[in-house]
């Protein structure tokens, strides 16, 4: 049959066109005029009223997020002490590819956004006709335990707004505004800012005796521990496996991670140490980070090392079981480094 032959032959085209078709978005060529944006903002404000009423009558938002007050609309004064209000859209988990919000078909006549390339710091996003300047952020809400939200925060009419995907539920959550409080744990640095901080920290951090032999990779990676940059050691122009990673945890804390026995760092004979006490100390730290969500901590895979300055590093790479607010146990991979006197 001719049609089948043709469609079969079409299956043999170059993969790059398949990728292109998957990611193509006509909307990026649209030229939104200011008047449309204004009209859309007005529409958004009107649309927000029933939502606001909904939250006013319900202290608990779907998904377990605690709602504080009525969601503001553009133009409202925002009280920084107010908890945020969240609103969920119906988005299937399958529509989310990794951390990339490929396409969200948003219900409630909210419009549609298409976002790609999470590491790009600035993106133009269209939401309900409004043009946003959006920045990818990876946030961590501690009130809503262990719900990691890959989200985009944008500015519209001078107001901070954000939306994103709850990676546990797979649903898109729309934050009507960003306030103080736990949501402020959001990583606020751009990639370039982080790059700069990583570099400065590396040079002054004493992570190695020969920082001049290290080269900072231009690549910014995003792992379960957050964003990080990698400094790799070169000896006589040859890359070695020794490296230092510096980055931001998902909770916004700066951290560094030493890999492959930097400098004089060596594994230590642990027979002279009370390992139980060390483990206990680490568990206390873990509990401090994870709070009541802490379930279990594996005492395996840890290595004790001695640094060039004489201190010891407990380099732990493992999993911690935590419960999210939906009662599901999820595993969080973490890297803990304890410097002992």
């Amino acid at each position: 049959m001719k049609a089948e032959k043709i469609l079969e032959a079409l299956g043999e085209i170059d993969e790059k066109f398949i990728e292109e078709a998957m990611n193509y978005n006509m909307k990026k060529k649209f030229n939104w005029k200011p008047i449309i944006a204004v009209a859309a903002c007005a529409a958004f404000a009107l649309a927000a009223i029933p939502v606001a009423n909904h939250f006013a009558n319900n202290d608990m938002v779907d998904g377990g997020t605690t709602a504080g007050t009525v969601a503001p609309v553009p133009g409202d004064e925002v009280d920084d002490d107010v908890d945020y209000v969240a609103y969920e859209y119906s988005v299937n988990k399958g529509e989310i590819i990794g951390n990339h919000v490929v396409e969200l078909k948003v219900s409630k006549s909210r419009g549609r956004y298409v976002i790609k390339d999470k590491l790009d710091t600035q993106k133009t996003v269209y939401l309900n006709g409004m043009e946003w300047t959006a920045k990818y952020e990876n946030s961590w809400s501690e009130t809503d335990y262990k719900v990691i939200v890959d989200r985009y925060t944008g500015v519209c009419n001078g107001r901070n707004m954000s939306f994103g995907v709850n990676s546990i539920t797979g649903k898109c959550e729309f934050f009507m505004f960003k306030t103080t409080g736990d949501i402020d744990k959001t990583v606020k640095l751009t990639r370039d800012e982080l790059y700069e901080i990583a570099y400065d920290n590396f040079l002054s951090g004493g992570y190695t005796e020969d920082p001049e032999n290290y080269q900072l990779s231009d690549e910014c990676s995003n792992g379960s521990a957050g964003y990080w940059f990698k400094f790799t050691r070169f000896v006589d122009g040859i890359e070695t496996s020794e490296h230092v990673r510096i980055g931001l945890r998902n909770n916004g804390d700066l951290y560094w991670f030493v890999g492959n026995r930097i400098g004089e760092m060596k594994d230590v004979d642990v027979s002279g140490f009370d390992m139980d006490k060390i483990y206990d100390a680490i568990e206390i730290k873990v509990k401090k980070i994870y709070g009541d969500a802490y379930v279990d901590f594996e005492r395996e895979g840890a290595v004790l090392r001695k640094r060039t300055d004489g201190s010891y590093v407990f380099d732990y790479s493992g999993h911690i079981d935590v419960k999210n607010s939906y009662g599901k146990v999820v595993q969080e991979r973490c890297f803990l480094i304890v410097i002992m006197d």
Binding site: I6, L7, L10, I13, D14, I18, A21, M22, Y24
Partner: peptide
């Protein structure tokens, strides 16, 4: 036929190619 289809795809602009492939590839 495969070669012909490959050539044909190249003649389409990005928009039409995306529409065409989404319909007849996906």
């Amino acid at each position: 036929l495969v070669e012909a289809m490959r050539e044909f795809i190249l003649t389409l602009n990005e928009e039409n190619r995306a529409v065409f492939l989404r319909r007849y590839w996906f």
